[in-house]
Amino acid sequence: MPKRVLVVEDNELNLKLFCDLLRAHGYEAEPVRDGREAVSSARRFKPHLVIMDVQLPHVTGFELIGQMQADPVLGRIPIMAVTAYSSHEDEERIRAAGARSYVAKPISLARFVDQVEKLMAEIDE
């Protein structure tokens, strides 16, 4: 059974790219376009990993990370932030919020897949 990845991204092209890339590497990808639906989608889909844009309309990635971390079930799911914020301070802030991994946009496809596989390997340990 393939591992499940919830992808929270408001940009349609990025959402398609991330989901297509994940599916090409054998993962089941569930797209979420609106951050306000991310928590309920995660509860229903039961992902092994959440990939999340930090800059979302209506709710920030930081708020979503906090909501997921506070949930007794969702709090155990690793989160990989994907964002245009690219400074060292931004990365530290994103990790301090609870994201396990961070990939800057525009993404390197190889780095994106490498980070997903690294997080999935940690789950298997």
Rank of each mutant, 00 (worst) to 15 (best):
Arg36Lys: 11
Arg44Ser: 14
Asp114Glu: 15
Glu63Ser: 13
Gly75Val: 03
Glu92Ile: 07
Met1Cys: 06
Glu63Cys: 09
Lys16Glu: 12
Glu63Pro: 08
Glu12Phe: 06
Leu74Val: 08
Phe18Ile: 03
Thr83Val: 07
Pro57Ser: 08
Asp71Trp: 06
Gln55Pro: 00
Met80Trp: 12
Lys46Phe: 02
Cys19Glu: 08
Glu9Thr: 04
Asp114Asn: 06
Phe62Lys: 09
Arg93Pro: 02
Val82Ala: 01
Pro47His: 13
Thr60Ala: 06
Gln67Leu: 15
Ser40Pro: 00
Ser101Asn: 04
Arg111Leu: 12
Tyr102His: 14
Gly98Pro: 08
Gly61Ala: 01
Asp90Phe: 11
Val116His: 04
Leu22Trp: 05
Leu56Asp: 08
Asn11Ala: 12
Arg23His: 03
Gln115Pro: 00
Pro72Arg: 03
Asp34Arg: 12
Pro72Phe: 02
Val8Pro: 12
Gly35Val: 02
Gln67Ser: 11
Val116Arg: 04
Glu63Gly: 13
Arg43Ser: 13
Arg23Leu: 01
Ala42Thr: 13
Phe45Asn: 01
Ala96Cys: 04
Pro78Met: 06
Ile123Val: 10
Pro57Gln: 08
Asp90Leu: 08
Ile77Arg: 08
Pro47Lys: 11
Val116Trp: 02
Arg4Gln: 09
Ala42Asp: 13
Ile107His: 05
Ser40Phe: 07
Thr83Asn: 06
Glu37Gln: 15
Leu22Ile: 07
Arg44Ala: 15
Glu91Arg: 15
Gly98Met: 07
Gly26His: 02
Arg43Asp: 07
Ala29Thr: 10
Lys46Cys: 11
Gly66Thr: 08
His25Val: 04
Glu91Pro: 05
Phe112Arg: 07
Met80Arg: 10
Ala96Thr: 09
Lys3Cys: 01
